[in-house]
Design a protein around this nucleic acid. Sequence first.
DNA 1: CGTTGAATTGAAAGTGATCAAGGCGTGTGG
DNA 2: CCACACGCCTTGATCACTTTCAATTCAACG
Lengths: 242, 242
Amino acid sequence: MPLESFYARVGANALGEEDRRVMNSLISATREFGSGTTIMEPDEHPNHVHFVETGWAIRRLILEDGSSQITDFLLPGDACDLPTLVGGATDWISALTTVKIVLLDRIALLDAMATRPNIAQAILRSSFCEQLVLRAWVGCFGLQEKREHTAHLLCELHWRLARIGLTQDHEFNLPLTQNDLALALGMTAVHTNRVLQSMRRDGLIALRSRHLRILQPDRLREIAAFDDGYLLAWNGHSERLN
Amino acid sequence: MPLESFYARVGANALGEEDRRVMNSLISATREFGSGTTIMEPDEHPNHVHFVETGWAIRRLILEDGSSQITDFLLPGDACDLPTLVGGATDWISALTTVKIVLLDRIALLDAMATRPNIAQAILRSSFCEQLVLRAWVGCFGLQEKREHTAHLLCELHWRLARIGLTQDHEFNLPLTQNDLALALGMTAVHTNRVLQSMRRDGLIALRSRHLRILQPDRLREIAAFDDGYLLAWNGHSERLN
DNA sequence: CGTTGAATTGAAAGTGATCAAGGCGTGTGG
DNA sequence: CCACACGCCTTGATCACTTTCAATTCAACG
């Protein structure tokens, strides 16, 4: 059930049994990428839409001068390249951990979307949700200080992981180095370190060996001004996650 | 022809005559909003998808503490609320100038998308293009200094306006106060002022009474690291704009 | 001609970057 | 089993870009 997380992500009731059967039938392959490898590069125009089955990947922007910005974390159930559906260009995507990718035939998926409204809805929602997250990132960059922004990212990741069942309470595996975090937050690794330490000092989080435990969830959300509502809309049939 | 700019935006060849006739037939109303008024608020679930016909609007994120971040400028041809298509929540959108909005019936548009692949493509592309712009914003925030970021925004606006025929060469009307710019760039109005002045001093731009003339386009693009290719993909049949 | 919103200017304070070293842990090779 | 190497985390001191606060000027408008 390689698309399990996708189904969880779009909401348990979004796709019925038959819808899932159809989507599963579109799977034309599964690929595995080693940690640190490139999953896709810009300007590819693949014939398949890629979904993450397991593992973490990052979407990044790279400038000519070599500097790069992480623009999104791709978690299980996330689509890598929906623009592929209509011939759009792909982003640079690389694997952070070992990543399993599911490939759905582009044309077949388009057909399925035309035939089954629920599938079209699920795909569109997934795309719009990506956009919501992105807009929130812009908001963080524009309005928050680095400490708040960092807190927001941790809240976001917790929220997204919880939705696909990858958290235990307020703990989860965070396979990111401080440098990765820095690349996403638009700050230096040094400063990331100091921010994390200050959070540890304040008893907000415990983070070691790639495992994060949020000790004061409410306080962290408060610092982050994290409004879990902004993503909630998309859970649709929405049990508020904790 | 209220959707003229939309057709220009998605590429002159994207929609044929019949496609346009169909889309035009979906128009159920046109509304006008005065400068400064609210076009829509979050958590509305309208029955219509809104497109800008003329004028400038802004999409913004507002925090409880009252601070707000502009996350996008909506220009003629831009859709305000595509997530409405699948029941998603709307953003806070307000008119910067007098704005004419075209309303397309949500269900009718979905039908049209199901029937006419070109229309579906055009809508999807428009959404993905929005995402590209947004991702670039995140990149700017994360990687650039304010002066570069400011330059990038000016380049982006020029590019987008050129595509819909609202520039004369390297000049265009920019109905933004320095404060509006600041709200989009995540900086203070004071600093925005200083950045603009430094650009003027360097002979990069001439800006007064809401009219911008880019005096050294190449140099500005260089400062901004503006890669017009990042949006180009979506012009599809793409004549590179100048 | 006074009012009002926008644009400017100056000085002081701060957040985060930069540069440079040092510490820690784990895996590899001797 | 120990030593070295490499990647990551930590710490300190200094520098710079931006913010903040507080006025002042400007320009359009009634």
